[in-house]
Amino acid sequence: MELETTEVQVIPEDKSKINKILKVALILGVVTAIEFVIAFTVPAGVFRTSVFIILTIVKAFYIVAEFMHLGHEKKSLKLSILLPIIFIVFLIFILMYQGAAILEVLQ
């Protein structure tokens, strides 16, 4: 009969991984702070909306690249995810432009 042990072996912490996580958290915090400043200082309009979309994409990139480990994958996999996102962002800008044009015609 085997005896169960309750000893826990502690692995030394990896300082480089902890520093990388803190760096990404700092970048995300700075981008979020910039978003808050823009939200309360810049008047509503296309510029503010465009900046929010761009900053949201930057935050999504860091989250996907570091926490979902996509940044360490092959280039072909990165492009297969990045290209559709570029098309979606392009579609959003086109819809914003056309929506503004339609509102001008209706008024």
Score class of each variant (00 low, 15 high):
Ile88Phe: 13
Val58Asn: 09
Ile88Val: 15
Leu103Pro: 01
Arg48Lys: 08
Leu83Tyr: 08
Arg48Ile: 03
Val37Asp: 15
Ala44Asn: 02
Glu104Leu: 15
Phe67Val: 08
Ile85Ser: 14
Leu3Phe: 01
Ser50Phe: 14
Gln98Phe: 07
Val42Ala: 12
Val30Ile: 05
Val37Lys: 15
Leu79Ala: 14
Lys78Leu: 14
Ala39Met: 10
Ile38Pro: 00
Leu77Met: 10
Leu83Phe: 07
Val24Met: 08
Glu35Asn: 11
Val89Tyr: 06
Leu95Pro: 00
Gln107Asp: 09
Met1Val: 10
Tyr62Gln: 07
Ala25Met: 02
Leu103Val: 03
His69Lys: 14
Ala44Asp: 09
Val46Ile: 15
Lys74Asn: 07
Leu106Gln: 07
Ile38Asn: 01
Glu104His: 15
Gly71Leu: 09
Ala100His: 12
Leu26Asn: 14
Glu13Asn: 06
Ile86Gln: 14
Ser50Arg: 12
Leu28Gln: 06
Met1Phe: 05
Pro12Asp: 11
Ser80Cys: 05
Glu73Ala: 13
Lys15Asn: 05
Thr6Pro: 00
Leu82Gly: 04
Val89Cys: 08
Ile88Lys: 08
Val8Glu: 08
Thr6Ser: 01
Val31Asp: 00
Glu7Ile: 08
Gly71Asn: 11
Glu104Met: 15
Ser80Glu: 06
Arg48Thr: 03
Lys78Pro: 07
Glu66Gln: 13
Val42His: 12
Pro12Leu: 06
Ile85Trp: 14
Glu7Asp: 05
Val24His: 04
Leu95Asp: 06
Lys20Asn: 09
Val64Arg: 07
Leu95Phe: 06
Gln107Trp: 08
Ile27Asn: 01
Lys23Tyr: 11
Val105Tyr: 02
Leu28Ala: 04
Ile86Pro: 02
Leu55Glu: 00
Phe36Arg: 08
Val8Arg: 05
Val37Ala: 15
Ile54Phe: 13
Ile63Gly: 04
Ile94Arg: 01
Ile88Cys: 08
Ile88His: 03
Ser80Val: 10
Ile94Leu: 01
Pro12His: 03
Phe47Trp: 06
His72Ile: 02
Pro43Ala: 13
His69Val: 04
Val89Pro: 04
Lys75Cys: 08
Ile18Leu: 04
Thr5Leu: 02
Val89Trp: 05
Arg48Val: 04
Met1Tyr: 06
Thr5Phe: 01
Leu106Arg: 03
Gly45Tyr: 03
Val37Asn: 14
Val51Cys: 06
Ile102Leu: 00
Gln9His: 13
Thr32Lys: 14
Leu55Thr: 02
Leu103His: 06
Ala100Ser: 12
Phe93Asn: 02
Ser76His: 11
Leu70Phe: 15
Glu104Gly: 15
Phe36Thr: 11
Ala101Tyr: 09
Ala25Tyr: 02
Ala25Gln: 03
Gly29Ser: 03
Phe52Ser: 02
Val24Ala: 07
Ile102Cys: 00
Leu55Val: 02
Leu79Gly: 09
Ile88Glu: 08
Leu22Pro: 00
Lys23Val: 09
Ala33Lys: 06
Pro12Ser: 10
Phe93Ser: 04
Pro84Asp: 09
Ile27Glu: 00
